[in-house]
Each structure stands twice: as C-alpha cells, then as structure tokens.
C-alpha cells in the first residue's frame, strides 16, 4: 500500500470515526441518566436528513438556514420521544423501557416509509462541503476534513454545558441519583428532556454529515450508524462523553483500516463492530474510560 492511499484511508477513517463519536454522545448521555439504550437514536439521523432535504426543496432556505432548522427540529423530536415513549415508564422495569425504545424505533422507520416511501432520495450537498483539495498529493474532499473539526467543536461545547453550567450540574446529579436530585429542588424530568434535546441535536448534526458523506437518504439509513455508534459508546465506556468520541474513533479507524489492509474482509465489515463489542464486554465491560456500572434502582 502506498503512503498516499494510506493517508487517504486514514483521513477517511478519522472522519467516519468522528461521525460515530458524534452519534455515540447521544447514546452515552441518555444511558448515563436513564440506563436505557435509546434504540430510536439512530432514526433521529434519518429524520434530520429528511428535514434538511425537504427544507431545501420546498423553501428557498439556503443550507446554512435549513441545516440548523433540521437540527433544532430533531432536538424537539428527541424531547417528544422522551415524553411519549420513555416518561410514562420511569418507574417500570428496564426491560419495558427497552421494548418501548425498540417500538419507537420501528415506528419512526415505518412512518417514514409510509409517508415518504422507500425510494432513496439524493441529499443535496452544499457547495462548501463539495470541494476537493489536494494536500501532499492526496485529493481529499473538504467534508472529510470538516467532519472531525465540527465534531471536536461540538464536543467542546457540550463539555462546557455539562461541566460549567447549572443545567450540566443537574444532569450530572441526575445521572447519579434521581431521588436526591429531586430533593435538591431540581426538576428531573426537565433535566432528562434537556439531555434528550442535546443528544438529539448532536445526532442530527451527525445525520446531516452522514447524509453528505453517503448522499442517499432512505427510511432505514439510521439503523447501522445507530448500532455502531452505540457500540462506540460501549467501547469508550458508557456514560462517559469523551469516551464515546474516543470509542467512535477506534471503531471508525478499525473498520476502514482493516478493510484497507485486508480487502478480502470487506464483506464482513458490518460484523466487525459487533466482534469488537463482544470482545470489550468479555474483557473490559466498563470500556476504556468507564467507571464501574452501578445499577440504579
């Protein structure tokens, strides 16, 4: 393998990994507070992409208006999701919560299928992200460079919210103990809604970049990125925001580089993430940066 191709694959891998990381943050935040795998999280990617497509097609909004609108809409959908599917089950056994999440995920996919149809739609890539630059003899799409940068910026913003603001403090408290948090006069449901909002907006940002990277949008586009991002969250240590991004990078790097070095394995690519998941759970169930998982009653 020449160094040019390697460099190209590396950039490719980093940008894919940062996408996984971005989506994984949402999983990790929700898991940290509710101890729930939000199965419907991946479908938020799909929702954001469709909103952006229709905003672009039906209105005269340029991308820098339609993208933030799509992100905001997805954030609100995240709050609604919590309100409709998870809040009624706060005191239920966790298995019920999980089943409800699976139901919500299927509902969103099939509603999209019924309303929009299964034919993949092309995602209009804004010109800004479409340019190709040449760096050390390697032709790179600027999107592949912007993606990790945007991810890092969003991550820093999120860390600021979680560790330097009052809402963030409440979120961290709620992830430790609901009852005590309530006793401190904090509206736990509002905090959870905020968590869903933040996680969903990040998922939406990830979904838009995913749709620009693979510009085919269909109702089931969120399933695999969602599953892999969840695995990234587990690899990084669930509940840990920085860990989620690191896990995402590991997964993205592994997935692309393995296929780059051993092309025969290309058809097993989708199984790779699950193999990593199983290995991590076998040997280090808390992930790279995770604290021991405590069962919250």
């Amino acid at each position: 393998m020449t160094s040019t191709i390697f460099f190209q694959q590396l950039i490719n891998a980093i940008s894919l990994g940062s996408l996984y990381g971005l989506v994984a943050i949402g999983y990790t935040m929700v898991y940290g507070i509710l101890r729930l795998i939000n199965f419907a999280h991946g479908d938020l990617l799909m929702f954001a992409a469709y909103v952006a497509i229709y905003m672009g097609a039906l209105t005269v909004f340029p991308w820098y208006l339609s993208f933030p609108a799509a992100i905001l809409a997805t954030g609100i959908l995240g709050i609604l999701l919590d309100r409709a599917a998870y809040r009624p089950l706060r005191d239920a056994p966790r298995i019920s919560l999980l089943i409800s999440a699976i139901g919500a995920s299927f509902l969103m996919q099939n509603l999209a299928l019924v309303i929009i149809g299964g034919v993949p739609k092309a995602f209009p890539r804004p010109e800004v992200f479409d340019r190709v630059i040449t760096l050390f003899d390697v032709r790179i799409q600027v999107l592949a460079i912007y993606t990790p940068i945007i991810t890092i910026i969003l991550l820093l913003g999120l860390l600021f919210i979680v560790y330097r603001t009052k809402v963030g403090k409440a979120m961290r408290a709620a992830s430790k103990d609901f009852e005590t948090t309530r006793l401190m006069g904090i509206n736990v449901n509002a905090v959870i809604a905020m968590t869903f909002f933040l996680g969903s907006t990040l998922a939406a940002a990830g979904g838009l970049m995913w749709a620009m990277r693979f510009p085919q949008v269909n109702p089931f586009m969120g399933v695999f990125p969602g599953l892999k991002a969840f695995i990234a969250a587990v690899v990084g240590g669930i509940g840990n925001i920085v860990g989620a991004v690191i896990g995402g990078f590991i997964l993205g790097l592994g997935e692309i580089l393995i296929v780059a070095f051993v092309p025969q394995l290309a058809q097993y690519r989708d199984a790779f993430a699950f193999v990593i998941l199983i290995l991590v759970l076998l040997f280090r169930p808390t992930g790279i940066m995770g604290e021991p998982i405590t069962d919250k009653s």
Binding site: L227, F230, V234, I278
Partner: peptide, 24 residues
Amino acid sequence: PVFRVRGDYLAIVTLGFGEVVRVL
C-alpha cells in the same frame, strides 16, 4: 459471552450475534 452480561447489554450482544449470522 452472552450470559456474562445482563439487561440491555445482553440485549445488544444477542442482537449483535443476530446481525453477525446474517452477515455470515
């Protein structure tokens, strides 16, 4: 590997094996 974990982890691991079989 499956019964080393419980709860949602077990769910996601079995789901993973389901996907692996399909890929295979």
